[in-house]
């Protein structure tokens, strides 16, 4: 059996527009030089670029403009720790409290943080709206009003609220407005983010829900030129630092960690009570 990614000598080939390597003279399996989008990572970039610029380079294979770097820095900081009440961070802590592995903490944060309710899939969907609607309010109106009529993509559950809005919010939370306004001071009054700030109340009226962090993140990713898929991936990645730190804080703290001991009500049976930790 041969496939089109095999060379004549039967070696498999992986195509990448991101990464190239030159082998060490004595070992073809070890790289002497690594190039990211044409830049020598270890020979040239290490002390010249920051992590955010490198992240952008990896995704886009071109240098970000100063405005883009600053925007991505602000967004990375805003997303880095959703806090210990957030579902994804709670998943990470739940793993760690019982002494599970570090990887299972982050896998849990990813599994939960991948969702359509406050997670990366919501950012993906909201970014899709941006691609479709841009800064045209009537288009947004139609999209948001018919969010639940959208074809569900494969394995994903049916949407229960318009993506980018908080189904349990009352008014747009202070940190979300702060993030939006800080991003606008960097990217300017003509940006999609500025349009979002101007039209926020109208959009919130259409949906009946306040703008959520996922909505600002999606708009920021769109302004930065990221596709829905890229936004989803970045949102997953950028929220991991907080999950990791909180997981470490709760490691083997199961005796103090909330257990909801008497909170399960089994319908049609006596209430099960596991009792407190001994």
């Amino acid at each position: 059996m041969s496939s089109k990614n095999q060379q004549n000598d039967n070696r498999e080939i992986l195509e990448s527009r991101i990464w190239a390597e030159e082998p060490e003279p004595d070992n073809p399996f070890v790289a002497a030089k690594c190039y990211c989008a044409g830049y020598d990572v270890y020979g040239d970039l290490l002390d010249k670029v920051g992590w955010t610029e490198y992240l952008y380079l990896l995704f886009k294979q071109e240098r970000p403009a100063l405005v883009q770097t600053r925007m991505l820095e602000i967004l990375s900081l805003a997303l880095a720790n959703p806090g210990p009440r957030d579902n994804s961070v709670r998943a990470a802590m739940s793993a760690s409290a019982g002494g599970s592995t570090a990887a299972s903490s982050l896998m849990s944060a990813l599994a939960v943080g991948a969702g359509q309710n406050g997670g990366a899939r919501e950012v993906y969907l909201a970014n899709k709206y941006w691609q479709e609607c841009g800064t045209e309010l009537p288009k947004w109106q139609s999209c948001l009003q018919h969010f639940d009529k959208e074809e569900v993509e494969g394995i994903w559950p049916k949407l229960e609220h318009p993506p980018g809005f908080d189904p349990y919010g009352v008014t747009c939370a202070t940190p979300i407005r702060q993030l939006l306004s800080r991003l606008i001071t960097v990217c300017g009054d003509e940006s999609p983010l500025a349009w979002l700030e101007k039209n926020r109340c109208e959009l919130e009226q259409i949906t009946g829900y306040p703008l959520a962090l996922t909505g600002v993140a999606a708009a920021a990713f769109f302004t930065l030129g990221f596709t829905p898929q890229e936004s989803e991936m970045l949102f997953l990645l950028l929220r991991l630092p907080g999950a990791a730190a909180h997981a470490l804080e709760q490691f083997l703290q199961w005796k103090k960690y909330p257990f909801f001991a008497d909170k399960i009500e089994l319908i049609g049976e006596d209430i099960v009570d596991y009792g407190g930790a001994d």
Binding site: S88, A91, A114, N117
Partner: peptide, 18 residues
């Protein structure tokens, strides 16, 4: 769903992940 591993499953669904 209180047991830690099951809780991750419940949270995943609550977050409407897969």
């Amino acid at each position: 769903p209180r047991i830690w591993n099951n809780r991750v499953a419940s949270l995943t669904a609550s977050a409407r992940s897969i």
